[in-house]
């Protein structure tokens, strides 16, 4: 690269489009958009090298509001489209904006295979536990018993955890944040941007129209300190208003204990480690649910593993070094040929 070219210093404004943002007033998506627009100018990547790919749903309107390259595609397919883009143009920073229905129901297959492959995509899943754009049906993350338009007597369809799914599929970077906890949201997005390989961020986001209060106990000032825990690498799992509660492992069973009671000290607590080989710790944490356990936010797992597009490029380079750059004439004349005089 020519070092004399001065890169324009970009600001959040440079990543805002002239389109009116058409999410409902009060939607949690606004916070995510704003955090992403704030983050991108800090990454040292030229604006034209960003591409945002989305599927269908409220969250998938995201690209229209980003002054970058963008593609608003079809339901559930954004990871597949982004994979083709990233593999053919690995120098681009490719982001996927998706939702719980888009990524986990109709697009579940593309989602798990993106995680498995460890291709360099940043996948941000806005999880409001409801279908918003179709006006209120249950999603794969809606809780049992939830009354929605398609479950008027309550949902009997068991939900799963997006982070557990991602970890189970072998994701190398998995994080979770709340739309209202901006410091954690900003931090996990930054770490996701810096991660090489597939980076998955679940944002628990309130749909104030069709599923208002889905995360209320996690966001309300009165309860949140006792219901959630922010994960910190190398630190014990401690939470509570007075930071006197912790989680320890009893065999494989996590349990809440009070520090200072029954001789319990910090040394007894489960210590978070983003880099544990395998995804066992991440999966364990991702299954912490209230009220018995605090719900974790932050980075569940961040490990360096071979990246798909790197492996692909290395293999292609090695074939080239053995065979030389492909030659069309030689190719057409290959195989068993014969001359007719």
């Amino acid at each position: 690269m020519n070092k004399t070219i001065e890169l324009k210093v970009l600001s959040k404004k440079d990543f805002e489009t002239d389109q009116d943002v058409r999410w409902c007033p009060g939607c949690g998506d606004y916070a995510v958009l704003s955090q992403v627009q704030k983050l991108l100018p800090t990454l040292g990547i030229p604006r034209e090298n960003f591409a945002f790919i989305s599927g269908i749903g409220c969250s998938s309107r995201f690209p229209y509001y980003m002054e970058t390259y963008g593609l608003h595609s079809i339901h559930g397919r954004a990871p597949a489209i982004a994979t083709g883009l990233k593999l053919s143009r690995p120098e681009l920073s490719v982001w996927v904006a998706t939702g719980d229905g888009d990524a986990l129901a109709i697009g579940g297959n593309h989602f798990i295979h993106a995680m498995r492959r460890n291709i360099g995509l940043k996948i941000v899943l806005l999880n409001n536990r409801i279908y918003g754009l179709t006006k209120g049906q249950f999603s794969p993350t809606s809780i049992i018993g939830q009354k929605t338009k398609s479950t008027p007597y309550g949902n009997v369809d068991r939900p799963f955890s997006p982070t557990a799914l991602a970890l189970g599929a072998g994701a190398t970077f998995v994080a979770r944040a709340l739309d209202t906890d901006l410091p954690t949201l900003g931090n996990v997005l930054k770490r996701a941007a810096e991660h090489r390989g597939t980076a998955f961020v679940e944002v628990c986001q309130n749909c104030n129209v069709f599923n208002d209060g889905a995360y209320a106990t996690l966001t309300d000032k009165a309860t949140r300190d006792d219901t959630r825990v922010i994960l910190e690498h190398g630190k014990p799992i401690i939470f509570g208003k007075n930071r006197d509660k912790g989680v320890r492992l009893n065999g494989l069973k996590p349990e809440v204990v009070t520090i200072g009671e029954n001789g319990i000290t910090e040394a007894d607590l489960l210590v978070h480690d983003e880099t544990v080989p395998g995804s066992i710790l991440g999966v364990l944490l991702s299954q912490f649910e209230g009220p018995a356990l605090p719900v974790p936010f932050g980075i569940f797992r961040a490990v360096e593993e071979p990246v798909y597009e790197d492996l692909y490029a290395e293999q292609a380079a090695s074939v080239r070094s053995q065979k030389g750059q492909g030659n069309l004439e030689a190719l057409l004349n290959g195989g068993n040929t014969w001359e007719i005089a």
Partner: peptide, 24 residues
């Protein structure tokens, strides 16, 4: 033919096949 300017991607399903090609 990896020594040509060719990338091949065996996708997770038929939809992934065409969608990756659209992304490309």
């Amino acid at each position: 033919l990896k020594h040509f300017n060719i990338t091949t991607f065996q996708a997770e399903d038929e939809i992934g096949g065409i969608c990756s090609a659209i992304g490309a």
